[in-house]
């Protein structure tokens, strides 16, 4: 029986032992649903996103929501204090979460967050980077790869221009940001494995 749910999109890592697996799942779903809706609202505001086919909009969101949330909620991972803030606002130390079963994924999330925050991006830069994260033509199930690719290229060019304009002496920031994309993919894969384990053994 699972006693802990070490995901910051949950209100708390403690699971009510009296609840059924389905009940735990429902409660978890209710806690992360608003954040997912925000990702969808964000996607709708990306110029050109709504022009993609509905199938491709859904495919991009299905594949990329975790990565977008990881970027948006990077600040929940406090690398200095070694704590994670859950949606309830309560902080839990890494040691506590480790004792609850958190493993490599947590470490990788900390590493990613620390590096992303160190880039000190503005809100506009972060939004554009998040759009680049979401609009990736190589996600599975994309019907019209050319359309998604064209939008992706437009967004990458816009991000490059913005970074060059804001940080003319730090051109490596753009490269560093692009290198975050494969990092996010790896985190997404690790997270998917955790989800599978959770669903099989809720």
């Amino acid at each position: 029986n699972r006693m802990h749910l070490v995901c910051p999109m949950s209100l708390t890592p403690y699971v009510d032992p009296c609840k059924s697996g389905h009940g735990i799942w429902e409660e978890f779903s209710m806690s992360f649903t608003p954040a997912v809706r925000e990702v969808v609202e964000f996607a709708k505001r990306i110029p050109g996103f709504r022009d993609l086919s509905q199938h491709d909009q859904v495919s991009l969101l299905k594949a990329g929501t975790f990565e977008v949330l990881m970027v948006r909620f990077a600040s929940l991972f406090d690398a200095k204090e070694r704590t994670v803030t859950f949606l309830s606002g309560k902080k839990y130390s890494v040691d506590t979460l480790r004792s609850m079963g958190a493993g490599d994924l947590l470490n990788s999330m900390f590493e990613f967050s620390e590096k992303l925050i160190a880039l000190q991006l503005s809100e506009e830069e972060m939004s554009l980077f998040t759009a680049v994260v979401l609009v990736s033509a190589d996600r599975s199930g994309i019907e019209n790869v050319n359309s998604v690719e064209a939008l992706q290229e437009t967004l990458i060019r816009a991000l490059r221009s913005l970074i060059m304009k804001n940080h003319p002496n730090e051109t490596s920031i753009f490269t560093k940001l692009l290198l975050k994309l494969p990092d996010l993919r790896s985190l997404n894969n690790l997270h998917s494995e955790e989800l599978l384990a959770f669903k099989v053994h809720p």
Binding site: S29, F32, R37, V40, K44, Q54, V58, K62, L195, L196
Partner: peptide, 27 residues
């Protein structure tokens, strides 16, 4: 369990959120 996003009910949430916008437009 090959699709974690579907397992989470993510697709349903995403579809509803996207459709909501269409409804708004119709209104």
């Amino acid at each position: 369990f090959a699709d974690p996003a579907s397992n989470l009910g993510l697709e349903d949430i995403i579809r509803k959120a996207l459709m909501g916008n269409l409804d708004d437009k119709q209104d």
